[in-house]
């Protein structure tokens, strides 16, 4: 079971949250200018790593805010929680 430290509400049980999948996906600035393949990559292609995954979660049954989580997909250990507007923390760096 995962315990998540919501940046606004503190540590809560996994059941209160919804995982929104990989974070830091950049929407093409001008969608009309990209190829079908590039658009499909933006829509569908995901990193899906075995290990550290940067993903976004919503505190659905709480403050309803989205935030980022760096989590190990094998051990389910959470290495960092940071806000949507924060930069991706370096793997293994301070606080990660």
């Amino acid at each position: 079971m995962i315990r998540i430290e919501c940046p606004w509400c503190g540590p809560r049980s996994e059941a209160e949250f919804t995982c929104g999948g990989q974070s830091h996906i950049v929407r093409p600035a001008d969608p009309a200018a990209v190829s079908d393949r590039e658009w499909a990559q933006y829509l569908y292609q995901r990193d899906n790593p075995k290990g550290l995954h940067y993903e976004r979660w919503r505190h659905t049954f709480g403050c309803r805010q989205w935030f980022n989580v760096a989590r190990d997909t094998v051990t389910h250990e959470i290495r960092a929680v940071y806000r949507m507007t924060d930069l991706k923390p370096a793997p293994g760096g301070e606080g990660v």
Partner: peptide, 13 residues
């Protein structure tokens, strides 16, 4: 509602 919030909070911050 969630759809709107997700775009607001995650994309067009």
């Amino acid at each position: 509602h969630q759809h709107l919030e997700e775009w607001l909070q995650c994309e067009w911050t």
